[in-house]
Amino acid sequence: MSLEKTYPKEVKLILSKYPAEQKRSAVMPLLYLAQREEGYINKAAMQDIAKMLEITETEVASIVGFYTLYHDEKAGKYRMQVCTDLPCALRGADEFLNNLCGNLGIKVGETTADGLVTLEGVMCLAACDKAPMFQTQGPDGIKYHENMTVDRTMELIEALKEVN
């Protein structure tokens, strides 16, 4: 299925942002669109985008490979990305992530058995004053969760379970 057919409005809006002869600029927003449903970008989607922008599939894949927010493999519906960078670590982020692992019974990089949450450690998210914190990357985009505790995180996961 092509993005132009699935998301005609969004594609049009995205393309309208850049000069017509520079439509390659649309590759990043289009990749987000392609990733929306499944949480990762498959080969067909890359082909589709390549065709739309008149670049090669390799060029599209090269973008996917470069940026950490694009994924080419399936993971949990929500990627829970805990910042463990220096400023957050100075405020207990490492322990927070550790405890979270314990509570969820998974290691960093793994996905809960129900396929809902994949736990990841990531670099600074520009919320250093509100550590521990993480973002969730899921079908509804990226959301920040700041000043978190393990308990509040478990509640959040429960809530996610409910809606899914």
Partner: peptide, 21 residues
């Protein structure tokens, strides 16, 4: 225009490359 997770894109010329797709 949204980046996608790359600190280097704060460097102005890397940013421009990224913005160019």
């Amino acid at each position: 225009h949204l980046g996608a997770g790359a600190y280097i894109c704060g460097e102005e010329t890397a940013l421009l490359e990224s913005l160019e797709g």
